[in-house]
Design a protein around this nucleic acid. Structure first.
Length: 271
DNA sequence: ATAATCACCTGCTCGC
DNA sequence: TGCGAGCAGGTGATTA
């Protein structure tokens, strides 16, 4: 479900409801997520105030005086605000019960998500330590892509999805940005010119920013923290459209697999 | 160091 | 209608 725009949409949806609130109780029904939820976490956060709700890459960070809760939504995770009395459904693994009678509920059928803890003063969590720049920040640009791609033989699509290069570019938006930039996804990253990388970086920024504006892409059942679906799906040019006509030239879009991920592009518009 | 593959898990769609 | 195969928004770990 979530790529960066969906995670950011979630963050914006839940922040007004939980920031500044005190955690009355953390209920972990299913600790077995991608990594085990730390056993001691409920005791650590009980009675603690959520001071901040931030995002780094696709991680959501709940800031406390004593440390930071690190949440990832994986492929199928979501967070929403509920009444604390709402009975849990099958994949409702964690509830952050607040003192105002509501709760932040984490749901994740596939359990690829995680909930971890980094205590204040501990070294930065390994998951966050070697991440590349945020795609919407000024640290990320075409020059960086150009420099980092020299001598790389892997496909450019795989390259821009590598979170050591830049974070937050998932399969949907990688496909979309490459289409917008007119670059074939299977070209070797090292064979692409500086000029084309400048264009690609701009398109990555544009597609992500636009998707955030629209509240993310709802494919199956993604909803933001406010329960509203995303509206970006109607803007997709290639993702999920293999075999259908290119919206620009009407030729049929090609679908291939690159690094186990479905990849769709136009053989005429992308070179 | 880089590239390719595997693994984690449930649910849904498709073809027979 | 039922059943196995394959696929899905992510990404760390493992293998060449």
């Amino acid at each position: 479900m979530p790529e960066l725009p969906e995670v950011e949409t979630t963050r914006r949806g839940i922040q007004p409801h939980i920031e500044g609130r005190v955690v009355k109780k953390l209920v972990v029904r299913q600790p077995s997520l991608r990594w085990l939820v730390p056993e001691e976490l409920p005791a650590i956060v009980k009675g603690q105030r959520i001071a901040s709700v931030e995002r780094r890459a696709k991680y959501l960070l709940l800031g406390f005086t004593k440390g930071t809760a690190i949440i990832h939504l994986g492929m199928s995770g979501s967070l929403r605000i509920i009444k604390a009395t709402e009975p849990p459904m099958a994949h409702d693994h964690v509830d952050w019960i607040l003192e105002d009678g509501r709760a932040l509920r984490f749901t994740d059928p596939r359990r690829f998500g995680c909930l971890l803890w980094q205590g204040k003063g501990e070294a930065q969590h390994a998951l966050l330590a070697s991440l590349g720049p945020e795609p919407l920040s000024s640290e990320f640009d075409g020059e960086l892509l150009y420099q980092r791609s020299r001598n790389r033989k892997s496909p450019v699509k795989t390259f821009i999805m590598d979170n050591k290069i830049v974070v937050g570019v998932g399969n949907i938006y990688a496909n979309e940005a490459l289409y917008a930039a007119g670059i074939r996804p299977d070209r070797a990253a090292g064979s692409i010119s500086r000029k084309r990388y400048l264009c690609l970086a701009e398109e990555i920024k544009k597609v992500l920013a636009k998707a955030i504006e629209q509240g993310g892409t709802t494919l199956r059942d993604f909803v933001g923290g406010d329960g509203k679906p995303g509206y970006f799906k109607q803007e997709l040019m290639v993702y999920g459209r293999g075999g259908q006509p290119c919206r620009h030239c009407r030729k049929l879009l090609t679908e291939v697999r690159l690094g186990q991920r479905s990849t769709v592009y136009c053989r005429a518009c992308q070179r």
